[in-house]
Every structure is written in C-alpha cells, then in structure tokens.
Design a protein around this nucleic acid. Sequence first.
DNA 1: GCTTGATTTGACCAAGTGGTCAAAGGCACG
DNA 2: CGTGCCTTTGACCACTTGGTCAAATCAAGC
Lengths: 202, 202
Amino acid sequence: MTKSAPRTRIQEKNRSAILEAGLDVFSQFGFRGSTVDKIAEAAGLSKPNLLYYFPSKEAIYLELLNSLLDTWLDPLRALNDDGRALPEILDYVRRKLAMARDYPRESRLFAGEILQGAPRIEDALKGDLKTLVDEKAKVIRHWIAAGKIKEVDPYHLIFSIWALTQHYADFDTQVNAVLGGKDPFPGAELYLEQFFTSLLKP
Amino acid sequence: MTKSAPRTRIQEKNRSAILEAGLDVFSQFGFRGSTVDKIAEAAGLSKPNLLYYFPSKEAIYLELLNSLLDTWLDPLRALNDDGRALPEILDYVRRKLAMARDYPRESRLFAGEILQGAPRIEDALKGDLKTLVDEKAKVIRHWIAAGKIKEVDPYHLIFSIWALTQHYADFDTQVNAVLGGKDPFPGAELYLEQFFTSLLKP
DNA sequence: GCTTGATTTGACCAAGTGGTCAAAGGCACG
DNA sequence: CGTGCCTTTGACCACTTGGTCAAATCAAGC
C-alpha cells in the first residue's frame, strides 16, 4: 500500500515538505485551483525538482487524500461498545471537534473532494467508509435496544456529528465573519455537549 | 443594483440559459474547474456568443453568487418574533432542509465559495449576513428570556441549523455512499425535528 | 581527486484556457 | 427591398499550466 519507501534522508525530507506544501495549497485552492508551481514554491523546490519526487500533481493529491481518509476515520473507529454509551458518543464528538480545530486543512481538503462528487475516493466511501459506519450504526442500535440512549436513527446521528463538527473547519470563514473573529470552539464544545446530551439522554 | 435589464426576448432567454448552465457547471466543478467552453456548451451557445452576453467568466459567477446570497438567507429572514418560538424554529429548519433538497446546486456553489475563503463575498458575509444573524440572535435570546425555549447559544444554534441541513446537499455524495442510495431526506427531517425539539423544548 | 549515482535546474513543449475581433447572418421596420 | 441594429461565429492570440529532458551539480565511497 505504501509507496516505495524513501531511502535517503534528503528524500524523506523533500517528500514530506512536498506533502506539507500540497496540503497547504490544495486545501486552500482545491485541486484545479492549485498549480504545481505554487506547491513547489511552498515546498522550497523548483517545479522539475518536485516532479522528481512525485510523478504528477495528481499523485501528490492522491497520496494526501488516501493517508487522510484513515486519519479522518480514526475517531469513529475508537467508538467502542463498552458499558457507557452517552459518554462514549460525547467523546467522539469532542475528538471530532478537536480535529476540526487542529487540522482544518485536512478537513477542508476532504470537504472539497466530496463537494465535487468525490471522483477520486468514491470507492473508498462506498467500501471502507460504508462498512465502518454500518458497523458503528449497529453499536448504536444496541445501545438503544439496551435503553442506554434514546431512540434515534443511527445514521443521521453520525451524519449530524460530522456536519456539526466539520462545519467549524470547513466554513470557518463564514463562522468568523458572523462572530467577528471570536474563537468559536469553546462555545461550540459546550453547545454540542448540550445538544447531544439532551437528544440522547434517556 | 440590477444589471442593465435585458431588452429583447432573445437576450432574456440567452442570459437565463447561461446562468442556468453556469449554476450547473460551477456547482459541479468550482470556479477554477469550470471553463467558459463547458458553460457555453451547456447553454447551447458558442463561446464568443456567450461572451457577448457576459463580459467574463467571473461576471457569470458573481451574478450567480450575489443573487444566490439573497435567496439563501430568505428562510432566516422569515424567522419572526411572533408568539410560538419552537414551531418557528422548526419551520426554519424545515425550510432550510427543503432548500438543500430542492436546490442542491445553489448550496454547493455557495459551499465551494466559502470553503475557499469566500474571496468574492467576504464583505457580504461580514455585512448583511452578520447583521441579519445578530438580529435573529436577539430574537432567540428574547425567547430564552421569556422561557419559551431552553437556554442555548443563539449563534451556535443557527450554525447548527446551517450545518445540519446543508450537509445533505453539500456532502450528498458521502451520504449516498453510506446509505447506499436510499433517499436521506425523510429520515433527516424526522431526525432534525427530534433533535431540535429535545434541545429546545423547555 | 575520481567515479558513480542521486539530485537539481534551465529551457522547452503541447494542451488548455480566457478573451478578442472582424466579418457574416439574421431580423424588424420603413 | 434596404437599412440599421442585434446576434452569431471562425479564426486567432496571449498566457497559464502540467510535464519532459538533457545537462549540470552534488555527495559519498574509494
């Protein structure tokens, strides 16, 4: 799965500099709006030098997207069917909100891809993602059946967590415009806790 | 404010065909990913002919964006401080969800613009949008003070309505991948009613 | 310092793209 | 039918952009 591992120190350094720069540029301008030149400049390399490390602009984008998908789903994977249902869900919400705060570029890159119809990760969505969500929906149904949380549609519950947390990263511009630059995250965390508690507490 | 009104019937027809095509193409590929040729073809015109009606690609995009902003805020404008607080909010949620269902292209065009930092509508966000939201936040605070709904942060309440409804339009690809193509909207409406009722009912 | 392979670069190319323009077609109306 | 204006188009241009390549540079072991 992993590309041919970098051998020398300099390769490792340059490859990761390119990926960093790619994340910066792609998340800001989208795939079509990003140029190899811009990425190269951000990485401190010349364009042909960049293309010495990656065969194409798309290869950079794809590597970012694929490594991202895993990271992005980790918090959901950690949702486990142990005893306490509501705290488990609230933890998931908090983890996801923290990711929106700490990794907004990743969130936006992902959002941009989905927004355009996810042409490059459709398979992953219908495969790994769907499988994982189906699995976790079952966990949630068990909690409901056991009376640990109120009855809600598990899929829409998961969608709502995604929507509410990622909104603060993806539409950051809008949120900041309305709040006049005030940091939205402390308030958001309180609101979301209140929100999901009142929805789910039996 | 309105551009020089079209005089002849053919102008009116072609201009609106171009805007329709522009909405189609821009919402699917974003500004940078859309080409004048693509839009012209979708409108059934040649490229120079299209440029006869609009001075540039950006002019089409801007006209769409500006006329959109108004439409997009109408449901929020309709949120009025009459007697019944909770039904008023639930109506707003329903209206917004209906727009996500019926006008997904508009939602995506808007989302794409915000995602890239809203370079072309920053002023409108910090101006009209902020003003409107501030005003409605005050209405919500009155409802809270009158004990008609539970105490929540009005701004995050509004953000959450935007996030939850637009998610179904903007990330439609993801939602469909997870649900295997099943129509999400009936379930979403139920879920959102439940959600906001349990959050707000005193 | 010499050799060998890894790294870097300037020059270049082909395709795509936004936009222009002069000329041709169409249409309404006297 | 002719005139004047609106509409349409083929040809064209300048610029951007992804990607190539041969040559130059560098680094490490001998």
